[in-house]
Amino acid sequence: MSEVLKFFMEYREAIFIIILSIFLGIEVISHVPSVLHTPLMSGANAIHGVVIIGAIIVMGHAGNVLSMILGFIAVILGTLNVVGGFVVTDRMLEMFSKKKKQK
């Protein structure tokens, strides 16, 4: 039991952030119209590309050749996720906004 409590105290800030973010995530998108489901999924897809920061950190401290190679690949993959995700989302949404201007 004390191990569990110790674990909680040690990571309480992260646990707070996790719990609040869960509710925030649910709240933020709960009123989305179905038209926007695909762009929203795609946009969220780009946001989890934030994992690239982890890749940069690992790559930034890579000491040997193997970890250099893996880190290099990780950064490329993360960038693909971020850039590809945002650009694809923008392309989808561009079509909606084009419509609006013509009216």
């Binding site: 995530g25 929203l40 946001i47 994992v51």
Partner: peptide, 30 residues
């Protein structure tokens, strides 16, 4: 999203943590 937030937990990195969990929870609702 959840996998990314695990990285955030590991590095104590708030951007990864919030970004990952946000996508994890909103993705689940979606």
């Amino acid at each position: 999203g959840v996998a990314a937030s695990m990285g955030g937990f590991l590095y104590g990195n708030q951007a990864m943590l919030t970004g990952g969990i946000l996508v994890g929870s909103s993705g689940t609702i979606l």
